[in-house]
Amino acid sequence: MSKTTITANGQTKNLSLEPRRLLADVLREDFRLSGVHIGCAHGACGACTVHVDGVPRLSCLTFAVQCDGAEINTVESLGGDDAHHLLQRAFREEHGLQCGYCTPGFLMTMAPYVEEMAAQDRMPEDAEIRHAMSGNICRCTGYQSIVAAVRLAITQRRNGESTQ
């Protein structure tokens, strides 16, 4: 067992963990953050994407003990219970989700991308948006509506709308 301190969505826990436990499992079970979804458990689908110290990471390929001292954010912290983050609102507007299983992963992958484009004050080509989400698999939408949602969110951010 390894003593590990993890902060998830602002809540800090001192945990005693088996080294083999996946970050995804610890977030789901110890923090009760069920928005972390496991799609493949081998790093190929992106459903489990969370932010580790602000950077999107695959929580199914990360051991929780690797995150000692880290600050983690999951989809629960993005826009709260009403899912009111700008990108979530854009997903709702553009029908960027159907079954919703892959959606937390897409949101956590693309939210920093939207910020990056807004910071550059640049609307990327659709091909660039598609490339940015190429580590996430969606089986329902065919991606087109997700691309549209990302484009909408970038437009709104560039127009000065707040993310919340």
Partner: peptide, 8 residues
């Protein structure tokens, strides 16, 4: 959509 996107 709200519950599917909020993690709930």
């Amino acid at each position: 959509d709200t519950r599917l996107m909020s993690g709930a």
